[in-house]
Amino acid sequence: MQSIQVSFADKYPDRVPILLQITDKSKIRFSDGSQHKKYLVSKSDHFYHFFQILRNSLKLSKKEAIYLFVNNSGLIKPESQVGEIYSKHRSNDGFLRIILSEYATFG
């Protein structure tokens, strides 16, 4: 893992690797049925774009609420800058681990 990470950093110094995991409780899946995906995102980018890309690849409309969390509790706001969140919350293996959750259902 460490070596892969080093090669990311060499090849794309302006980008950061993100490991996105959909929470177990959610029914949302990627088209291949998996619940996680890795991304390389520009440091200067804002999370708006990331949200948009997630909505596209998960086939979610703008009206379906999704939320991204770091450290199991911190909400990522769309206006946050990728590089800033990365430097605060990156894991030891170099990835920024983000958990995606939707709303709970109530009956």
């Binding site: 991304y39 390389l40 708006y48 890309i53």
Partner: peptide
């Protein structure tokens, strides 16, 4: 701005934005 942004599926392993 979102409209002008694209992403490339380099391989299944990693999506480069």
């Amino acid at each position: 701005i979102l409209n002008s942004c694209q992403y490339i599926d380099q391989d299944d392993e990693l999506v480069n934005i």
